[in-house]
Each structure stands twice: as structure tokens, then as C-alpha cells.
Design a protein around this nucleic acid. Sequence first.
DNA 1: AAGTTTATCAACCGCACCGTC
DNA 2: TGACGGTGCGGTTGATAAACT
Length: 221
Amino acid sequence: METINNKETNPRVSKEFSKGAWTAEEDRKLAEVIAVHGPKRWKTVAAKAGFNRCGKSCRLRWLNYLRPNIKRGNITDQEEDLILRLHKLLGNRWSLIAGRLPGRTDNEIKNYWNSHLSKKINPKQKPGPAPRKGTSIVEKAPQLADSNKANMYHIQAIKDRSTATDGTTTSEGEHSSSKQSTPSFDINGADDDFFDFSNESPLNLEWVSRFLEFDSRHHQS
DNA sequence: AAGTTTATCAACCGCACCGTC
DNA sequence: TGACGGTGCGGTTGATAAACT
């Protein structure tokens, strides 16, 4: 039999990678290989581990389960509150939200949102994934409203600038010139009406409160 | 106790971006 | 400069545990 997936584009079809739940043995091998080679070149990692998993699957397993310092379960009230606030701000950018919650993965937060928080927000709404667009403050921002792509640029700019503030790299000019010449809005938010959280520390909850203050002012005006 | 429904979460899928050649 | 491979992201699926009838 084995007619699981016939899509030509799916590498699993031709290579017949195994799927489904990971065994303890697979976890152990994966951890071993990553300890030696590091968490990169996932295709190579998968090959070195010697089991029949694709690199992508290995990456996911590592990031969501095996990685050190992962917290599992028991999302605290504080974390929940932060997720709610961040979701209001960012929408379904789970990886960005996870980035503000040390030890939590995007997958876990996404699952938690879909199973718990989306119901809290919209009790009448049928449970399930949140809508792709239009739910976040970022996406409602006037400068960005006409372009989904622009949202991506904005988020990327935020990421880039966060990286820059960590210490070393870039000047403002590099960001605006090298990667992204297309966006027509002012990404650095010099003009009004836009909460710039990009310089805030990931672990500092204060900026979230400041955002909410900003948010309520924005709605009053 | 057995059958059915609902909730949860690990894993998969497809797409888009980025870096390298 | 375009093709290609690697990577990351968000949406979705499927297995199974828990709750309910």
C-alpha cells in the first residue's frame, strides 16, 4: 500500500521519510548528533543520526521538544497575560511572541492560543485557528493598512533593530538601504501614531504596559 | 461500562525568505 | 542575476486523553 502522499513536490514521497511520533531512541540519537554538530544543517544532522527522518522534522523536534531550557506545560497567569497582550500587538506572529517568553516555543503558544485563549477572547466563536490577518495592532496601523507585505517588512525591521540593539552590528542606514528599498512608509516610525517597541528588552514587561497605554490613547483620539 | 464528543498538543505541510554559488 | 538549497513561520491535521451521555 503506502499511498500516503502522492504530491510530487513532497520530498517524503520519493525518499520515504518516516513520519509520526518520535521514539525515545530517535530523540537520544538526535540529541547526540546535535551535541556534536550543532543545531544547523538539518539535512546533515538527519543523515548523521542515521534514522529515516527529514531535516525539517529533526529541526522541529529539536526546537519544540529537545532544546535545553524548554518549559513545558503550566503556563502561568503572567505568561498568559503577556501572550494576550502580545497577540493584541502582533497578531499571529507566534515566533515573535515566543521570543518574549523564555523557554516557550512558538508551537506551544500557538496551541495554547487555539485551545484556551481564543475561546476566552471570543467565547461565541467556534474554536480553532485565529484569522490570518487584521487582528493585530500592527496590522491595523494606518501606514500599513493597504499592504500585507508591508506588515512583513515592518516585523522584519523590528527584528533587525532588536538584533542591532543587542550589541554589535548595524547602523540605521544599512537597514533601510540594503534589504528593503520597496516599502513606502517610514519604518523607523519617526512620524507619530506608532508604538516603537523595538528597543525594549525582551524580558522587560514594562514595555507591554506602555504599549497598552499607547493603545488606549490611540483609540481615544 | 461502553460509546460518543470534545479538548489538547505533537507533528506535518506548504509557502516565503535568505544566503550561496 | 537567477537557480537552488536551507531555514523559519503559520496553518492544519491526526492521535489520543479526558469529559460527557
